[in-house]
Write a protein that binds this DNA or RNA. Structure first.
Length: 107
DNA sequence: CGCATGACCTACG
DNA sequence: TCGTAGGCCATGC
């Protein structure tokens, strides 16, 4: 069982219509403070893996831009909206499903 | 082995 | 709201 496998397992447990942050996934995967590894694991994830990668957003409740183009970003938002996730005016996800508080990871 | 890079996070200007 | 700084660590050169 590698770190990535545990990360994927946690993401697979995210209910439809809800989202989790990189930091939260890292915490649940037994890797506190290593949110960056979650992002790295997702970057290494093949397209058809069955992992709901779209349900992982950053600590600000926004879709993280990544290399490869803004098209993926738009696709992720579209997929989430189709699952019932609401986005606010500023492009952020409404706090109803985002009410937890991450612990200090930096400084 | 050293160095740079990256779907991150928080604090501070 | 944006940019910078410091910390985490896997991966590639």
């Amino acid at each position: 069982m590698t770190r990535y496998d545990r990360i994927y397992a946690v993401i697979r447990r995210i209910p439809r219509g809800r989202v989790a942050t990189y930091g939260q996934v890292a915490l649940l995967a037994g890797l506190p403070g290593q949110a960056r590894m979650v992002g790295y694991a997702l970057a290494a994830l093949p397209g058809r893996s069955g992992v709901p990668w779209q349900r992982v957003v950053n600590a600000q409740g926004r879709v993280s831009p990544r290399a490869g183009g803004a098209g993926f970003e738009a696709l992720q938002r579209a997929m989430l909206r189709r699952e019932g996730v609401r986005f606010g005016d500023s492009g952020g996800i409404s706090l109803a499903i985002f009410r937890w508080r991450p612990r200090a990871a930096g400084r």
